[in-house]
């Protein structure tokens, strides 16, 4: 690691990074809310958090968050592939996070498919995608937490510097 200076590649990068973190948190919250635990464990009783026990609302918010996350992921991927990759390379931790995001999108996509009229999967496959979706999200959180603590970046200058994501 020749140079560990954290720098922004794009002017909008701080906004993208903040949006990514807020969206991931919102997705985790509304995702966990699909399980009947927030009411049981009094979390929905906290003033202002009653909505966490409303399944249809949290489900719609999860879908909305997924749409916004897809916009963000597609934007970043396209900017990287069309422009940034000339000068920057994805770091190892970025590749791990991208793989986990991809796995979350694929398993989430199957869950969305299952919820459409006329489409049903076997109980085993449904359980598999539910548990896999949850597990990939937990792994992404662990890797993300490590990235924050250890100051891992997404991009590295092909020539030298590590770049802030």
């Amino acid at each position: 690691m020749k140079n560990t200076t954290r720098v922004a590649v794009l002017p909008e990068q701080p906004v993208l990074a903040a949006s990514y973190r807020v969206l991931l948190f919102a997705m985790a919250l509304t995702g966990v809310a699909q399980m009947p635990i927030f009411k049981r464990y009094y979390i929905a009783d906290i003033p202002g958090l009653g909505w966490l026990a409303k399944y249809y609302l949290t489900h719609a918010l999860h879908y909305l968050g997924a749409s916004l996350l897809l916009v963000l992921v597609a934007y970043c991927m396209a900017v990287y592939l069309l422009s940034l990759r000339k000068r920057y390379v994805l770091t190892g931790s970025a590749l791990v996070r991208i793989a986990l995001l991809g796995a979350i999108v694929v398993t989430g996509g199957f869950r969305v498919l299952k919820n459409l009229p006329g489409i049903s999967f076997s109980p085993g496959f449904t359980q598999f995608i539910d548990i896999a979706h949850l597990s990939f999200m937990m792994l992404l959180f662990l890797v993300g937490a490590a990235a924050v603590l250890l100051r891992w970046t997404w991009l590295a200058d092909r020539n030298a510097a590590r770049i802030e994501a």
Binding site: A66, V73, N115
Partner: peptide, 15 residues
């Protein structure tokens, strides 16, 4: 779900 299908296209267009 329709919004989810449009989302990646919107992201790429913005990029």
């Amino acid at each position: 779900t329709t919004a989810m299908l449009i989302a990646p296209v919107a992201g790429v267009a913005a990029a």
